[in-house]
Structure formats: C-alpha cells, structure tokens
Design a protein around this nucleic acid. Sequence first.
DNA 1: TGCTGCGGAACATCGGACGTCTCGGTTCTT
DNA 2: AAGAACCGAGACGTCCGATGTTCCGCAGCA
Lengths: 223, 223
Amino acid sequence: MAVTESAINRIKEMIVSGELRPGDRLPKEADLADRLGLSRNSLREAVSALSLVNVLDVRQGDGTYVTSLEPKLLLETLSFIVDFHRDDTVLHFFEVRRILDPAAASMAAVHMTSDDTAELATILAELNDHASVESLVANDLRFHQRIAEGSGNPVLASLLDTLSAPTTRARIWRGLTQQGAVERTRDQHTAIYQAIAARQPEVARAWATVHIADVENWLRTVP
Amino acid sequence: MAVTESAINRIKEMIVSGELRPGDRLPKEADLADRLGLSRNSLREAVSALSLVNVLDVRQGDGTYVTSLEPKLLLETLSFIVDFHRDDTVLHFFEVRRILDPAAASMAAVHMTSDDTAELATILAELNDHASVESLVANDLRFHQRIAEGSGNPVLASLLDTLSAPTTRARIWRGLTQQGAVERTRDQHTAIYQAIAARQPEVARAWATVHIADVENWLRTVP
DNA sequence: TGCTGCGGAACATCGGACGTCTCGGTTCTT
DNA sequence: AAGAACCGAGACGTCCGATGTTCCGCAGCA
C-alpha cells in the first residue's frame, strides 16, 4: 500500500483506538513522520487529507490537533461532496430530504422545549414583507435548522443541514419570489411551527411533508 | 488563504464548472502546479485530499483522473467519516436509518420489477440454518442493499449503505446469534420481502419499521 | 498590573533528485 | 504473420534540505 495512504489509516487507527482523543495534539510533523517511518512531505499529504474531512485541525505556528469529532463537524464535509453533484442528482438529494424533514418535524414536536418553540416563532416573525432573496434564504435555513436540532438527534440535524446545498436553496427562493409563492411558503412554515408548538407530531409531519413536496414539485418543473 | 487549500478549491471549481468532466485526465502534476502557481509538493497535498474523498483517482505511472463522481462513489467517503464516531453516537446514526429504511422499503414496493423481487427471494433462500455470523452479516447487508437500490434513488441507497457501519452490523448479529434471535430476524426479512413482492408499500414500510426498531431496541439494551 | 517585544517552536512552501510503475511501441521468437 | 518478451519515455511516489510565516509564552518595561 502507498505510504501516504497507509499513514492516513495509521492516524485514523490512532484516533479510533483512543490513543488520540478529541482535542489532543499530535506529535510535531517531524517526529510523527519519523515514528511512522516516512518523510515529512508524505505525512503532510496524509494530514492534509484528514484535515479536509475535519478530522484534524492544523494550526500554523502551533501544532496539529484532533478535532472534537462531533457529528456536526464531520458531516460538514458532506456538503463538500454534495457540491460535486449536478442538477440531475439534486432531485435525489431533495427526495431524501423529503423523507428526513417530516421525521425531524415530528420528533421536534415531541422534544422541543417551549423556549425552543418560542425561538421558532421569533424566526418566523423576523421576516418582513419585502425581504430580499438573501434574507429569505437565510431565514428559511435557520427555521429548518432549528427544527432539525429540535429533533434531538445531531446526526439527523447535520444531515439535513448539508443535504440541501445553499446554492440549491438560493435557486429555489429566487424562483419562489419570481412567481409570488413566498406567501404560501411562509404560511406553510407557520403551520409547521404551530403544530410543533401544539405538540402534535403527526400534524407537524404532515405539514412538513406538504411543504417539502411543494418545493420538490416546483423543482421538477424547472429543469 | 493557504496555498494548498486554495488549490483544492481551484480544482473543485474546475470540476464543478465543467472544465474538467468525469473521466477526464488532469494535466500532469508539474504542469498543473505551474499553472496554479504553486509547488508540486503543495499541489500533491491538494490532490491527496481530493483523492481521499473519491473526487480524483491517481494512478501511478499513468496520470490523475476525475472519477465518475457518482453519488455512490462520493458517498462512500461517508463511511470513512462514520468510522470516527464512538458508540454513543452510533444510536443516532441508527435512528436515521430507522427513518430511511422504511421509506426505502415503501419505495421499493412501488419501483422494483419482478426480476428484482425474485432476486430478493434468492438472497433470503441462500441462508441455511447454521450460517456463520459472517455470512449472516453479508446476507443481511445484501438484502437491505437490494431494497435500497430498489427505491430507485441512488443517493438514498448509498446513504443507507454507509449509515450502518459493518462493524456495528457485525456486533448486532453476534448479539442476535447469542440470544437466538436469528429466526425472528429472518421472519421479519421474509415479511418485508413478501410485502414488496405483493406491491404493498405501506405494509413494507411497517415491517421495515418493526424490523429496524427491533434491532434498535436491542442496541439500546447493550451499551 | 498590563503592555510590548523578542525568540523558539511548529507549520507552510519550495525546488530538486531519485525511485517506481504503467503504457505502448519495438524486437525477437515460433 | 502472430504472439510473447523487452524496453524506454512519461507520470506519479517518496524523500531531503532550506527558507518563510505564524503562534505562543516569557522577559522586560512602564
């Protein structure tokens, strides 16, 4: 096996086995390279790769550290991967979101505290009638993020967060604005919120399904 | 921004913009490094990182190529990421699977051809009474993979494929074997298959939910 | 006490040299 | 003429040593 590839697995193994724990600092490049029996250059290729997927955090002048390894952080790299997919697979990603989002809404209706739901209401209220596309996108993002977090499952929340890439979201909202469908979308958001606040998981699930399916149908009409 | 990091984004941009298409060959390292204005060493760090996430495929003695960029391929790196999570988050991953798997079963009941369902039956039949844990795991994996593929959504299939890491699966089956629950699991698989073959999406969804929840509950008892 | 400046440590980047592998054309054999 | 063996150019793999940048902590000063 290639030296660099082997180094990646060696470091991975050190972390998985518990020898290196989240937040730990790695030996300095020269030492680690020596210990793994390769050159510093090759080691750096391995570190660079692990850094891209947020497993390692290298700080110039300081050292290299293991990240917190939280699902949120590691699944962020998923968005990097999603970026490579062209329009024809965007619908497939969206379809998965259509499965997960209603489930998250349902779980949120059970798990969210009243403080949490109050925050949801605040997000809804922040939107005025003449918001720009950018603020619509940002608001939409926060609304769905809040609900996803409210599910109590960080993996689910992170997946949902990255599944619908910002670029897609922007395209959607631009389209919604153009055809004057912003109002309907806002109504659907409100309905989802009300169901969650009323602790009605099935209603929340239904509204979330309606909402996502609505957007998905619009996406299908605009290739 | 760091040179290497910048190079990663430059290459990414070349691919996303369509300048480099799936299967295309990159300029040789020396040329590309020169074109991007950095040393070959630094470029190699970038290439190494993109290679880890299956965006690039480097072949010694030949050249560096853009992969097919299929969802299946790119989402494979997800399993690399999942490997870093410890037992306490395994349940969260499993919970997501509990959401996706029933949806996939339901979709499969609609989309699978009779040839496909016949294949499912074959997989079920391949298991004899005294199978080893390894063959149980392999069979279980294939069964669920087939259904996931049958959903018609490659993204969903790949996600499901990587969500439940092989190590977890192995642990589960070891446990099931020990407590003699293999038979029940097999019955559930059969029920799922029959619902799909009978084109009953809701029944398939229900059995899949029962099946996954059953395993999940067992997982919760064994920390 | 708090700020400033300095020096060591660690990562960032570079250029070049040499090893290894792959591919494709050439040559030899049958 | 067909096939096998050979070989050399090209491309990636690995390593070394040197220099630049940045960060952290400590010493010194006001």
